[in-house]
Amino acid sequence: MSLWGFLASVIPLDLLTGLKTTGKHLFARKATVQYPEQRLEPADRFRGMFGYSLERCNVCRACEKACPIGIIHIESHWEEYEVEGKKRKRQVIDRYDIDVKRCMFCNLCAEACPTEAVWLTTKTYEAAAYERNHALYFDKEKLMRWDGVKPFPGVKTPAEGGLPYFSLGGEKEEEQ
């Protein structure tokens, strides 16, 4: 063994550099976010809870078909109505249920929707519940009221006219 090799094995410089690194971090700024008091704001595109707008939904069932795990359940009936004396038919939605507990937040339903009636960019991540079968099963009223799932402060609910944060192609939705 050379003298240098011997010295290097006796003087633990390698260990000391390690100690120096941890010692340096001892005084560094801490990274912890104290969760219930401090909250991180999710990004604009963050896929959280569902937003659903009844007015914009034209019952095309694209979301239902796009969903890989089939958690969207839609029921509708045809209704006749009169516009300027002409009889027309339209589809009226009876049920729009999303079984959120099984959702994997892949965003395919929102992408499939031609009218942006369903979207996931509601900046909500606190969707935990004590009971999953009822608390995390959302029908259309619950979806619009966000019962049990609080939106991020400053985000409007669909009932208040809240809209998706971005649509396909990356264009930002114009403020209304």
Binding site: T22, G23, H25, L26, A28, R29, K30, A31, T32, Q34
Partner: peptide, 10 residues
Amino acid sequence: KLLAYMQIRL
């Protein structure tokens, strides 16, 4: 506490 401070947490 000390370990946490070295590991940049609280």
